Every structure is written in structure tokens, then in C-alpha cells.
Amino acid sequence: MPDGFITLDKEHNEALGRLVDRDPTANVFIASHLEASRGLSPSYAGGEVIGVFRDGDLVAACWAGVNLVPIGVSEADGAALGTYLGKSGRKFSSIFGPAEAVLAIWSTLREYSPEPFDVRPSQPLLAITGAPRVEPAPGLRFTREDELDVIVPACAAMFEEEVGYSPFTGGGEHYRRRVASLVRRQASLADFDDDGQVIFKAELGTVSSTTVQIQGVWMNPAYRGQGLSASYLAAVVLAAQQRAPVVSLYVNSFNTRALAAYQTVGFREVGTFATVLL
């Protein structure tokens, strides 16, 4: 196998699997795709995996679809990969994953990209195994499709708070279908008040055999500051642990209130992610 960057195929499944298994929590995104697709294939989930080869061995890789997700990429390889991707002329919506790799890719890819919407260089990657340290909220449950008219606005509010613009920009049907897919897969969790409005919601966003990555955590502003977050998060953890033993998430380092809630539940820091929104 020549050195350099090569698009991987099914012949590389075993080598890529070994690479992913070095850090299955950080690499849950690609692990989930590999398990769902039973390996790489020509129609591989709307993207491709670019491998980094040295002395004939696969030493790193990067999922390249709408998003870029590095796997075991060093600072030097990341910078070279950013140039390679930039010269390809492809456009991406985001880069996310281990901070060193993401920021290295962006250090050179930025020369070929528009001004980023946001760069988040420090996002603690947190994980929990075993029982949460607080009692779970009893009302949290998986949502139903007949609740979409209530769930979708809550998801959109979370998205706008997190990203800075509405997911309905350019039309909302695609976003509604995405939320509906989460509901159908029993990946959407919420609790509701007496008026039928969402109090708290979260999603089991990415799931592999070893790890569930929680996404989309949101508390209705009317219920914030009441000390409810930790118990709801504990309930999310218990639901996630029915799918895999490790539950993880990543959060912006400046979000001290969220970090405190996660630590109360029993999450510990296991790495650092970064995100570039394009």
C-alpha cells in the first residue's frame, strides 16, 4: 500500500476497525456507521473515509461527508489532510472530533474555505459508566410521533441556542423529518408539563455497541434555575445504558453551568473535542 491519502473501501474494514477501537468513545461517530453498514461499501452512508498511510500501514483516517470527523489524526497529518481536502474543492458544513486533529485540519483547510460561522476550540468530552450519582427524573420517556408538533419547536430552540441560527432557515421540512427519524428510532427523550409543553429533552444521538453519545440537551427556559437538570440527565444516562455501557457527550468549556450538572451526575472528562462550523 503506497503512503499518503487513500479513500478506504471494504478491504480496509479490519484496519479501520482497529484504529477506531483505540478510542471507541471519541470515535463513536465512525463506529456507529461501521456497525450499521457492516463495514465500508461504495454507497457508504453518504460519505467516504480517507485513510492516512505510512510505511504501508493505516495510521489515521477521516470521515468526509457533509462533515469532517477525524480518527486518530495527529497534528502533522491533520495539517496535510486539510491541504489535501482544500485542494479537492469539496465543501463541508463542519469539522468535529478530537481537538488536536480538528484544529490541525482547520489550520490549512481554512485557506480554501469561507469564513467560519464559529470555531469552538475547547469542548470537554465527558463520559460515565455505571449508575449516575443522583436519582433520575421519573417523568422522562421516549417521545411519540404524535408529539412532533411539540417536540420540533423544542429541538429548534435548542439548535438556535447552540448554533446561533434557526434550523428552519430555507424551509423546515428537512429538519422536521430529522426529528421524526429520532422519534421513530426511540432516540428522542423528553418530559412534559401539565400544558403539554416540553420541560426537558435530549437525544441518543450516536450509538455504537460500546458508546452512546448524548446530543441535543435542552431545558425549557421557564424551568431553568430550579436544579432539575441533574435528575433529567441521570434519567437520560439510564436510558442510554440500555444500548451501550459508556455514555458520553461534549460541551463547550465556557458552559460552566452545564459542566457542573454533568459532574454532579457522575460524568468525568476523558478528552477534548473541538468544532468548526462552516
Rank of each mutant, 00 (worst) to 15 (best):
L148Q: 04
L148F: 05
V150S: 13
V150H: 06
I151H: 07
I151Y: 06
I151T: 07
V152C: 03
P153K: 03
C155F: 10
C155N: 11
A156P: 00
A157F: 00
F159P: 06
F159Q: 08
E160L: 05
E160N: 06
E161F: 01
E162H: 09
E162S: 12
E162N: 09
E162Q: 10
V163P: 07
Y165P: 08
Y165S: 12
Y165E: 12
S166P: 01
S166N: 00
S166Q: 03
P167W: 05
P167S: 04
P167C: 02
P167N: 03
F168R: 11
F168N: 11
T169M: 12
G170S: 07
G171V: 09
G171A: 08
G171R: 10
E173Y: 13
H174K: 15
H174T: 15
Y175R: 05
Y175F: 15
Y175T: 04
Y175A: 06
R177I: 00
R177F: 05
R177E: 11
R177A: 14
R178Y: 13
R178S: 13
V179P: 02
V179S: 01
A180N: 00
A180V: 01
A180K: 03
A180D: 02
L182Y: 10
L182Q: 07
L182D: 03
R184P: 02
Q186H: 11
Q186D: 10
Q186N: 12
A187D: 08
S188A: 14
S188H: 07
L189Y: 05
L189W: 04
A190C: 12
D191G: 15
D191H: 14
D191N: 14
F192H: 05
F192L: 11
D193Q: 13
D193N: 15
D194H: 12
D195M: 13
G196P: 11
V198L: 06
I199A: 08
I199T: 12
I199E: 09
F200K: 08
F200W: 15
F200P: 09
E203D: 15
E203A: 04
V207S: 04
V207Y: 04
S209R: 10
S209N: 09
T210E: 13
T211C: 13
T211G: 08
T211R: 06
T211K: 05
V212R: 00
V212P: 02
V212L: 00
Q213D: 13
I214S: 02
I214Y: 00
G216S: 12
G216N: 11
V217L: 10
V217T: 12
V217S: 06
W218L: 07
W218R: 07
M219V: 13
M219L: 13
M219I: 11
N220Q: 04
P221G: 01
A222G: 10
A222D: 15
